[in-house]
Design a protein around this nucleic acid. Structure first.
Lengths: 166, 166
DNA sequence: TTAAATTATGTTATATTGTATTATTACTGT
DNA sequence: ACAGTAATAATACAATATAACATAATTTAA
């Protein structure tokens, strides 16, 4: 099993995260230019905040962070920015956590399949065609036409699993 | 493709729903007796209310219904009952809707895979081992040990799809 | 290059969903 | 009757999300 289809794996805590954030913003910037979307300062800032960690962030955490910037902010502000980011694929919403996480590959539209570590809270994103295809087929067999797949899996990431075996 | 692994398919609107509810309560009753769980009047009533339709119900709708019974009820009342029902597999929580739906087969533990019609809101439940297995394998390949799978799919059920092709 | 239209944001208020906590009641077995 | 456990009641609050309307910024197009 060499195919992995991993859009973003669990990141070691010591990776160069500044570069990581910068890259996400750079890509978003380019994609928006190409698609004629408006990555306004607010939206850009929210995206940056979402990328502060490789784990889901709640809307109200983002709100606090925006307020920390000195600017006034209220729920609609952050929810609107999130709507834009989610709608255009820069951020995914994790339904089972009511939280948001940066997308590992915003260039092409997809739903993503999420592995959520219950211990360290980090998230990995897969986009495995075999999984989506199988689900689509099974649904089709019932006459169901899929428009969106939500696949969120909880458990222990490799690192936490090893650490747990004391 | 004859294997379907469907725990509960989309029910036609004209099926005998009274029987349907009665059956669900009967099964829950039997399972509880067997496992020495206490299906108290409150829990039983909440389960019954969840089964009023084959579509997800919000906790606060249940709360209103309980109040409609004449009894006093507050959020913890319904959430505790739901916790019990979910924990013991009589009801599933649909994360993407913050809502609850009756389980089509509470006799054995499982996560369920849900098809949610965006038009009529009805839900079908599958429990397809091929799907869970594939996801488990892909996750394992990343060193991830799964404890729970959340699979919720939105789209159009067969009936609504036909109707849409005007 | 203004006016109109569109899009984005600000602002206030409120709706919805979910928990923590403490107290009380009702069963279970001795 | 009593201790131990499970269930429920009751209050308060935390967390998440949207409605509705006002203003500002940006784009379009005359």
């Amino acid at each position: 099993m060499t195919d992995k289809n991993v859009l973003s794996d669990f990141r070691p805590n010591d990776h160069n995260h500044e570069a990581c954030i910068a890259a996400a913003l750079e890509i978003a910037s380019a994609v928006c230019r190409e698609r004629e979307l408006r990555l306004t300062p607010l939206r850009r800032r929210v995206l940056e905040l979402v990328w502060q960690q490789h784990m889901p962030v709640g809307a109200y955490d983002l709100l606090d962070a925006l307020r920390g910037d000195g600017r006034r902010a209220d729920p609609p502000t952050v929810y609107r920015a999130l709507d834009f980011l989610v709608e255009n694929g820069f951020v995914h919403r994790i339904e089972s956590l009511n939280a948001y996480v940066g997308c590992g590959e915003p260039e092409h539209a997809h739903n993503g399949q999420f592995l959520i570590c219950g211990n360290c809270s980090r998230v990995a994103e897969m986009e495995d065609p075999a999984i989506s295809k199988l689900i689509r087929e099974k649904a089709n067999a019932l006459g169901f036409r899929i428009s969106q797949q939500t696949i969120e899996v909880t458990g222990l990431c490799g690192e936490c699993r090893e650490r747990a075996q004391t």
